[in-house]
Design a protein around this nucleic acid. Structure first.
Lengths: 159, 159
DNA sequence: ATTGTTCGTTCGCCATACGAATGAGCGTGT
DNA sequence: ACACGCTCATTCGTATGGCGAACGAACAAT
């Protein structure tokens, strides 16, 4: 055991599955008039507003890239910048009402489609797959780029 | 069973794992002076040369997008266009020697990094994960965007 | 107050992606 | 043979994405 063939199976499985998910994600976004990046931004912000720096960390983007992504998404009226009274350098990015509505339907539809990808697996295997991927994801500290159902349903949005 | 929570686990597991793999892929590409798309192109061509139309299907790109990707990659001397004597409309895209060398090292390094992602899993779980992902991938007819080790070791590359 | 740091934006540059329009080459039908 | 329609790939225009460097504003420390 421990043969190269099996290990490579995991590797190319992961890479090809990622390709597949990307395709589905992009197509879903497209149908709602979103780019994949804008869709991802909405999904991240579903959980809570973020400061630009945090967001850059979550999305793994350079700050200049993020400024422009937020610009374009804000131009479409989906997100807004709020200033932090504590520190006037900080900008908090939050969903607008329209953005929240769109995020909901985009998220739901994307979930539906991604779920279909594993529809061919028996129930037990799907759970196993979820558990194993969950392990990989948490081992590698992947930020919450896509909400789990029960996460933070509009918590603090004061000021 | 069949609760929403478990099913969502698979969905967000897949989406987050895809995000993770993308990050790793992009970073690996970057270190070899490649964009992720160019890296992917090289990986696809490792198996064999492709015509533009086929390649568009494999990479899921519009043909104009592909023309330009091949342009840029060819400018870097990594791929070349060959004309098909059977049908002079057809362009076959193949790796140059430099491209093949770079593809080899990029592929190897990317494999290494992706494999590390699942390094925290016990051997048996890794095999299970590979098997389940393999099932998802084949159920959804994902093209060979990333080679398996034993695939097509430099077949026909004449003239 | 001056300095250093953090924060976000701006700017220039290149890569990505698409649709529409274009033109080259193939095949069929008559 | 030649005109038509089809497929192939490219070109063009537009929008987006992504980065690093440079910048200015606001905080923090002395």
């Amino acid at each position: 055991m421990g043969k190269a063939a099996e290990e490579l199976g995991v590797v190319s499985g992961l890479v090809r599955a990622a390709f597949l998910v990307n395709s589905v994600y992009a197509e879903s976004a497209r149908e709602y008039g979103l780019t994949p990046q804008q869709g991802q931004l909405l999904c991240v912000l579903m959980a809570q507003p973020y400061g630009m720096s945090e967001l850059g960390g979550v999305l793994r983007l350079a700050k200049s890239s993020l400024t422009e992504l937020v610009d374009r998404t804000a131009q479409r009226g989906l997100v807004k910048r709020e200033s932090d009274p504590r520190d006037r350098r900080v900008v908090r990015v939050a969903l607008t009402e329209r953005g929240a509505e769109l995020a909901d339907v985009f998220y739901a539809e994307t979930c539906r489609r991604v779920e279909e990808l594993s529809a061919g697996l028996p129930e037990g295997d799907r759970e196993t797959l979820g558990a194993l991927l969950g392990r990989v994801v948490s081992d590698n500290r992947v930020p919450a780029v896509f909400p789990e159902r029960d996460e933070a349903p509009v918590a603090a949005r004061d000021n």
